[in-house]
Design a protein around this nucleic acid. Sequence first.
DNA 1: GTAGAACCTGGAGTGTGCTCCAGGTCAAGC
DNA 2: GCTTGACCTGGAGCACACTCCAGGTTCTAC
Lengths: 141, 141
Amino acid sequence: MTSGQPLPQDRQQSLTIAQVAERTGLTHDTLRYYEKAGLIERVGRTTGNQRRYQAADLAWLEFLLRLRETGMSIADMQRFAGLRARGDETVADRLSMLREHRAELAERIRALRRNAAALDDKIDHYERLLDERQPGTDGPT
Amino acid sequence: MTSGQPLPQDRQQSLTIAQVAERTGLTHDTLRYYEKAGLIERVGRTTGNQRRYQAADLAWLEFLLRLRETGMSIADMQRFAGLRARGDETVADRLSMLREHRAELAERIRALRRNAAALDDKIDHYERLLDERQPGTDGPT
DNA sequence: GTAGAACCTGGAGTGTGCTCCAGGTCAAGC
DNA sequence: GCTTGACCTGGAGCACACTCCAGGTTCTAC
């Protein structure tokens, strides 16, 4: 059931903006904003000028979301998308952007883990405080 | 050298706003903003109305920064600071706020690690692409 | 062929977390 | 006692990443 015979007409698995919104968790407005901002290349339209997203559009969006979730700014995503639009000659540049982003992410994760450990200490501290003030309410024997 | 004899006068290790800015990495403006917003209780002043931060102020600030770095909003920090200002009776509430924040943080770290792994795959992909286009430029032998 | 939902555009508005400014006061060295 | 840099306040302004709006068009189901 993956690519047997072509589906009726040739709209294959093209998706409306509402369907993409549901799949990605973005809103219609955010999808249009990303397109306006150049994060997504102009999406194909119906004859009536309505967007129809293809599988490739969705895959790219999902990659963008990964960049966003790992803290990349819109400005940097614009840079990346711009390089991508220029084609294969920019592969090295894109790779170095990704490597740099990956390194920053590693550092951020390390910092979060340090802070998590400190939070754990603080939580322990509050637990002891609470035990002193209300001893024995933590369950019987 | 921790608490031998009292230092001259009684300004002990009280710090100016510039000194606190340097130690915390915050700006003067941000420190004043945090105070205005109620994240910090009103800091002690000189007779001439200039702020002098005590060790306890600094410790609290550092804790706030940990909350901020782990993604807590100003609004939630305000809630926490408000509870703290009400004293010991709010320890249980503060504890549960911290536990919730800690759990969210754990989830965020997990998500970041998943995304980091996906980024690594993408990086591998780009590295292979680059090798195909420019074989043998990765060093001799 | 028509009702109603979904979609379109350009542009204005919003929430968050600062950051800057004007106009004045204070403190430390000479 | 004067200069100069640090500090004060209230309030305006800003960057970012959306989010909403008005007014119009298109699509789908009947």
